[in-house]
Amino acid sequence: MNMEQGIVFAGFGGQGVLLAGKVLARAGMEHGLEVSWLPSYGPEMRGGTANCTVVLSDALIGAPNVDAPQALVAMNQPSLDRFEPQLVPGGVAILNASLIAREARRSDITVVPIPMNDIARELDAPRAINMVALGALLRALDTVPLEVAGDAIALEMEERGRAKLGEVNRLALQRGYEAASSVLQAGA
């Protein structure tokens, strides 16, 4: 039986959900997996929301769009409203507790609330909320190692001429990972 995971990242435009997905895909590839990254690029982006779907697999990937994702990263409440019902039973929802007031409605999923904006602000890097989110996801998925994702975001920043942002993004990943660890251990 092969391993295949579908992950949806969703949030407001500007929260970095497309980049978070790309870094996961890149890290997955470096980790030796097959990956696909499918962005929403339509008018919905211009309406202020963005999402992307990443598939990680140990075999060639068929559909890059996913019926029932294993994981959702919801950076805001509209994203939770839209994608929570789609999650596979037993799936995991990483929620941005800084912006989402309500609890998850499903009882058959693992919910990991992370105060992403607060953690990013503590690092004096408010734009790194996407890496806080990705760090939490990596902990919950346990498919791609944290260090590989750290290298991927560092390279991504370097290629964008912002190499000096590599370290803070790596740190944001780490903080998100640790925050998810606390939540998951408390729930275990």
């Binding site: 895909a25 097959e34 990254w37 499918l38």
Partner: peptide, 10 residues
């Protein structure tokens, strides 16, 4: 099509 144009893969 747009899906193939926009998506990323290795």
């Amino acid at each position: 099509d747009g899906m193939l144009g926009q998506m990323m893969e290795p």
